[in-house]
Design a protein around this nucleic acid. Structure first.
Length: 718
DNA sequence: TACTTTGATTCGTGACTACA
DNA sequence: TGTAGTCACGAATCAAAGTA
């Protein structure tokens, strides 16, 4: 027998290319011992598989009742090939290949919910065999894996706390699962998934099929690849009749929906997420009708206190009205607080809108409305085709996956079970009809919402910002006027930024760098700014004394130690001077400028709260532009990375002297920006022109989206 | 004609990468 | 260690093109 490969072997880039999972299932159906191995090496795949099969055989051979019934993958290779191989080698007479359950569920979701068939395990199998998409032409994505989310979802499902929680569920409604539940951990203990990074980085699968020209795949363009794949057809088998994974998933969902856990406040969830929940609910309701899994919708008298640890057979949907009203008042306070802020947060930020809460509802309300037929549809009232259409659009994307991904994004160290209980008990939902792209204001928020909200130019205050009735329609946009306006701006060659509601003409460019204590607090230790328009500078004779200690790693990186800054200028004084001396309207250029901007404003806000600042930023209109982006776009050659040091070295063939000192870095950046290989000699005008281009483009986009009323807020100064 | 397939578009995502 | 920006891509959707 060949060498036994380790997990690490299999994950290494030059070895494992795909995951393959064997299920070994007890023939008597006890499911008490399930073993899974994996890995699809890029060479001699089948001999490897057979090694593993033999290994498993040896391990379990004492139990005659065990046999290997097949494999589970995400569908990359032709199962018949495996089957033929096994049969030809007289190793196995029967082999069932199926896709991983996540993939199955993905494909099954809509048919499952839409189906008029009774839903049972057999029903599922029937559906999978009928579903056309299981037999289709090969797609490029079948070969090039982009399945991190799926892998992550699997990993979330096998968390121990999920399984432990599941075992605590007892109900006479699901007697038939009680024999299975205790064995679930055994199953998962032996279930190995390949590491997503290694799968991801493996690139094109070393596909063992005679008619695929593997050697040339890497050389093909995307277009050629697509053409090539069109010629190849793959066929997939239906899932195993004893698809444990699917079964367990359903058990998990059942557990999620049945049990209650102390509510915890989470952020609002989106329409997409709601639809995910609804899709699960619908699925379960159907399953319930067919006595397979038996959730119940709560009656009015089943209201329970969310402080009590309940374990009954009702959905605890009704117990958070109080919570909801409490949150309303809390929310209002938060909004007020935000509104009282001065306009520092507007500097460099985008448009903001009033919040609206007229369409806030709860999961409970939503589900009741669905139950009552007020939402979506009533089965009996509409023709089948209508039902299908409505359901498909209502469920929208990634219903189930959304729930899984919520775990990752919303909760650290959370299991699905906890999470969904909380979702059901303590969420408010902002329902935004999933209709058009312009109306879709936000979607699944991450644990930290700021990224998503910033992306979508939404000022986060806990609620969506644009009421539907205020959203301009396409008809309200006077394209001609907009075009004329932009042309006139271009003609004047002004650098106009519309990043805040009132636009400004920027006549000054400043190149600045800050050094800070760490990534989190970002207290200043060193500052230097060079006004590129008049060659004046802002610098301090010593370091700045930060409001916290410099982290060890930062000391090592910058060679600025805590001793060195001890006698420096106080940070509040430094900030006061910055505010006073920085131009009121300027383009600030810095390398990875969000960092510098954040550090300055963090310090500003800190000392403003302490009331130790003589000046404030209220009148300033500072637009931070990132030299990183400019250089990346304008540099003639591609670099391995775009760190300041790397760029400098590339252009000048030497290191920056005293790198990580603010003055040195600013001078270096200035030299870089003036280098002919990037922009030409006239850095200020070039940058201005560049900025002008991108802000105009961004502005046009916004106007097209939000309507011509923006034109009125343009106050171009001459 | 009735259907299936294809292409374009948009959103949301993870990975990656800058900064101290 | 936190944050924000870019990139590529999957899924959903719809309309146009293709096909029996």
């Amino acid at each position: 027998m060949e060498k036994n490969h380790t997990y690490e072997d299999l994950c290494s880039n030059n070895f494992a290319k795909k995951a393959i999972v064997f299920q070994i299932i007890d023939l008597y159906g006890n499911f008490s011992n399930v073993c899974a191995v994996f890995a699809l090496p890029n060479s001699n795949m089948f001999s490897f598989i057979m090694d593993k099969v033999r290994e498993i055989d040896q391990k379990w051979s004492v139990h005659e009742k065990f046999c290997i019934i097949g494999s589970v993958t995400d569908g990359e290779f032709e199962p018949a090939t495996v089957e033929n191989f096994l049969n030809n080698n007289n190793e196995r007479k029967q082999w069932t290949h199926c896709e991983g359950y996540i993939h199955i569920l993905k494909r099954l979701r809509n048919p499952l919910i839409d189906s008029s068939h009774a839903i049972s395990m057999m029903g599922l199998i029937y559906l999978t065999s009928k579903y056309d998409n299981l037999n289709r032409k090969l797609r490029r994505s079948d070969l090039i894996v982009k399945d991190e989310m799926n892998v992550e979802s699997c990993l979330n499902l096998i968390k121990e706390d999920v399984l432990q929680a599941l075992q605590t569920i007892r109900s006479n409604l699901k007697e038939e699962f009680h024999d299975i539940l205790p064995s679930v951990p055994n199953f998962f203990n032996n279930f190995v998934l390949s590491d997503s990074k290694n799968i991801h980085k493996s690139g094109i699968t070393d596909f063992i099929m005679k008619d695929i020209d593997i050697a040339n795949l890497n050389k093909m363009t995307e277009k050629q690849l697509n053409e090539y794949f069109k010629k190849i057809t793959i066929f997939r088998h239906s899932p195993s009749k004893k698809n444990m994974l699917l079964l367990i998933l359903c058990i998990i969902i059942y557990g999620i929906l049945e049990n209650s856990i102390t509510p915890t406040k989470l952020d609002i969830i989106s329409d997409q997420t709601l639809r995910g929940i609804v899709s699960i609910y619908r699925m379960l309701k159907r399953l319930w009708f067919h006595s397979w899994i038996l959730p119940e919708f709560p009656s009015n008298d089943s209201i329970i206190s969310h402080n009590e640890n309940q374990s009954n057979n009702c959905f605890p949907f009704d117990n958070y009205e109080n919570w909801s009203s409490q949150q309303n008042s809390t929310q209002d306070q938060t909004v007020d607080k935000n509104n009282n802020d001065d306009d520092v947060s507007d500097v460099g930020s985008d448009l903001s809108y009033d919040s609206v809460d007229s369409n806030i509802t709860t999961i409970s309300d939503e589900l009741r409305a669905i139950e009552a037929g007020q939402k979506f549809f009533k089965l009996s009232d509409r023709p089948v085709e209508d039902q299908k259409k409505i359901l498909t659009s209502a469920i929208s994307s990634n219903g189930l996956e959304l729930i899984f991904s919520l775990i990752q994004h919303k909760c650290n160290n959370f299991c699905i079970y906890d999470l969904c209980s909380i979702l059901l008990k303590s969420h408010r939902i902002v329902v935004i009809e999933h209709l058009t792209d312009t109306q879709r204001l936000f979607s699944l928020p991450k644990k930290s919402c700021s990224k998503h909200y910033n992306r979508l130019n939404i000022k986060y205050n806990g609620l969506p910002r644009m009421p539907d009735n205020k959203l301009p329609t396409q008809e309200t946009i006077n394209r001609e006027k907009v075009t004329q306006k932009i042309q006139s701006l271009n003609h004047r060659e002004k650098s106009v930024s519309l990043r805040s509601n009132s636009s400004v003409v920027i006549r000054t460019s400043v190149d600045l760098i800050v050094e800070t204590t760490d990534f989190k607090v970002r207290s200043l230790t060193d500052f230097y700014a060079d006004n590129l328009s008049n060659n004046s500078t802002i610098e301090f004779p010593q370091f700045i004394r930060p409001r916290r200690k410099i982290e060890k790693s930062v000391v090592e990186l910058t060679n600025i130690s805590n001793e060195m800054v001890l006698n420096g200028v106080r940070e509040d004084q430094a900030i006061s001077r910055l505010v006073a001396e920085l131009p009121k309207k300027a383009i600030i250029i810095a390398h990875n400028s969000p960092f510098d901007k954040d550090a300055i404003f963090k310090a500003y806000m800190y000392w403003r709260q302490k009331k130790l600042l003589q000046y404030n930023f209220k009148e300033n209109r500072l637009i931070f532009e990132d030299s990183l982006g400019i250089i990346k776009q304008k540099l003639l050659e591609k670099l391995e990375n775009y760190k300041l040091g790397t760029i400098f070295k590339t252009l000048f063939d030497r290191d920056i002297v005293d790198q990580h000192r603010a003055k040195s870095d600013v001078i270096a950046l200035k030299q870089i920006l003036q280098h002919p290989r990037i922009l030409g000699n006239d850095v200020i005008n070039s940058v201005k022109r560049y900025l002008s281009e991108i802000t105009i483009k961004a502005t046009l986009l916004k106007i097209l989206l939000f309507g011509s009323h923006l034109c009125h807020s343009w106050k171009v100064q001459h």
